[in-house]
Amino acid sequence: MTKFRMALYAAAGLAAIAALGWAFAPQPVEVETVTVERGHFEHAIEEDGRTRLRDRYMVSAPVMAHLSRMTLREGDRVKAGDTVAVLTPVMPSLFDERSRREVAARARAAQAAVSGADARVERARVAQDEARLEHQRTDKLARDGFVSMSRLDSVRLALDGTGRELQAAQAAREVAVHERELAQASVQAPRNGGSTGQPLFVRAPLSGVVLRVPLRSEATVNAGAALMDIGDPMQMEVVAELLTTDAVNAKPGTPASIERWGGAPLEGRVRLVEPSAFTKVSALGIEEQRVNVLVDILTPPAAWLPVGDGFRVTVRVITISADDAVLVPVGALFPRGNGGMAVYVLDGSHARLQPVEITARNSNVGWVRSGLSQGQRVLVYPPPGVADGSRVRVRS
């Protein structure tokens, strides 16, 4: 009986020791895993953008004129050569009593100047006739030898001088006549209900759609005033303001995707990266150097007809694209001390540290160059307690 009790006590002691060992032994860490797969890898630069017409024409007034009320509205289609606006010469300014008297007095003064110019012309003509008679008498006396040749030359020069004076007087009279006409035109009232000339028809430079009509009612406009904007909505492009550090990878010809416009993604291609950048302050108050990148829409217009000028879109410039790439979630990657990357590979019930080389990565997955193969299971977001060789248990 004593031996039996001793065996019983020994078994109880061993069970207690085993229970204590199990209680204080490290427990497996619960982890989540994912299988390494092969698939399509894509790295893109994503940025907000806006649509705009490639060619936008602003129709303006060529001269200062009176604009008739606009009949065209935004969205109306026009053809090249169609009349889009009618301009008529502006009416003369209205005169108060003082201004009217001043203009009338100026007209009378101009009339008096013409009369004075007529008198000066007549006086110059009389002087010329007198010089001509003196020249005839002196020429006869010179032939008879009664006056010297020098006297004849002086008389001839005097006759030429009177001719020049007559021409000057006639020119002065022409100036006075034109000034009189100008003064008389100032006092004439407008005729035909205020119209002072023929209307000028402004025509569309191309076939397209009216985009903006800044002034609809009739008004007097200055030369160069904008009347409307016209463009072809089928010639659309997208402009995105990319950081200069990203724009160096968005070379012309790089494929792009235009998304979040209200429909299916559209195919695009980078056409131009503008050569000059600009400074823009972000929402956080940080100064950023950005540059405009122009993207052409390659999808047929029938797929994006609802898109208009100035619509907001999202542009994804695809800088790297590869098929049949080994893909691992970015949540499984973590940096190593030597500057490389590593993952934890599930080996039965243990986690094994595995260095990997990454070709490129995006916001979701990384493209593995070496270190992993398809079908291996890796830990995603490994807990801090996981180390090389740790026991793990996959969370269901």
Rank of each mutant, 00 (worst) to 15 (best):
P92N: 07
A387L: 10
K140A: 13
Q289N: 13
P383V: 07
A104M: 14
S390M: 06
A168C: 08
V239I: 15
D296T: 01
G145A: 09
G194W: 06
T220A: 10
R120H: 09
P205G: 06
A109T: 05
R156H: 05
H350F: 11
A107F: 04
L379W: 02
E274G: 06
R395V: 06
L284T: 13
F278T: 08
P92T: 06
R52T: 05
V386E: 04
N364C: 06
M91Y: 13
L133E: 14
E241M: 06
V210G: 02
E237G: 04
R38L: 04
G285W: 02
A7H: 07
K140T: 09
E181A: 13
L272F: 12
G81K: 07
G371L: 04
V126M: 08
R173D: 01
I17C: 14
R69T: 10
T196V: 14
P275L: 00
L346P: 00
L327T: 02
V187K: 04
V90D: 09
H40L: 14
Y57P: 00
R54A: 13
S115K: 14
P62C: 05
Y344D: 00
S99K: 15
M6F: 10
R191C: 08
S150G: 08
R391A: 14
Q111K: 10
G13T: 14
P275H: 01
G310D: 12
R395W: 09
L353A: 03
P329W: 03
E30D: 15
A264P: 06
M234W: 14
S99Q: 15
T33M: 09
V328M: 05
A110I: 00
A19E: 04
